[in-house]
């Protein structure tokens, strides 16, 4: 475990907790894309299939349970909670899941390290995670208003993967362990997707004005 990975995991943990706390306290999910949250629940499910078969460390297992638990409870809140669901903007959050899920699945079947069910599912989760934020970014552009917590949520999500890239670079040079190119590509694509959001986020923060994404 190196500092980059720990910082990345903590940033990731913080992002989901910020979101869960926001929804739980103000009982609203305004500006949050349910599609993205459902895609993340799918990412964690397909990524952590080995949670009960391969024990790596207590930290690893606990974090997996937290990510699974938080992503599913966020989906539950937006779908089922009698107050929160009213603030869900389903007319604007219209990104089709299968536009992302099908291509990632096909890609994972053809481009993977080992053609086994678990390995294909793991690769699928890497590809899907890279694009899962798209419905959220589309929603932010449509609604054109980003409340602070949502902006921080997306920023933290992008930052976590950028830290993971530093972790892969670090591990590449310090351990016989070498990062597989699929992980590199998916991680870089994911971080690049956030790049334009980062740009506008920093602009708004620097000029101390409300964050507006160009249409």
């Amino acid at each position: 475990m190196n500092i980059f990975r720990l910082a990345g995991d903590m940033t990731h943990l913080f992002s989901v907790l910020v979101l869960l706390l926001k929804i739980h306290t103000i009982k609203s999910c305004a500006g949050i894309s349910l599609k993205t949250q459902e895609l993340y629940a799918l990412v964690f499910t397909t990524r952590y299939l080995d949670i009960f078969t391969d024990f790596i460390s207590l930290y690893n297992t606990v974090m997996k349970l937290i990510f699974l638990g938080s992503s599913f409870s966020i989906v539950w809140y937006i779908r089922r909670h009698k107050i929160v669901r009213r603030s869900y903007d389903k007319d604007q959050d219209t990104f089709r899941h299968y536009f992302l899920v099908i291509p990632c699945l096909v890609l994972a079947v053809f481009i993977n390290h080992k053609f086994t069910f678990k390995e294909v599912m793991w690769t699928f989760s890497l590809y899907l995670e890279a694009v899962a934020i798209l419905p959220q970014l589309v929603l932010l552009q449509r609604t054109r208003n980003i409340d602070n917590l949502t902006g921080q949520y997306v920023f933290l999500l992008g930052a976590y993967r950028a830290l993971y890239i530093l972790n892969w670079i670090y591990r590449h040079f310090t351990e016989p362990h070498y990062v597989h190119w699929i992980t590199w590509i998916a991680g870089v694509v994911q971080t690049l997707l956030y790049a334009d959001f980062f740009y506008y986020y920093f602009q708004s923060w620097k000029n101390n004005e409300k964050l507006q994404l160009p249409a």
């Binding site: 990524r47 690893n60 080992k114």
Partner: peptide, 10 residues
Amino acid sequence: DTKIDQKDEL
């Protein structure tokens, strides 16, 4: 066998 020890990551 190049065990993909990537799996120790989240």
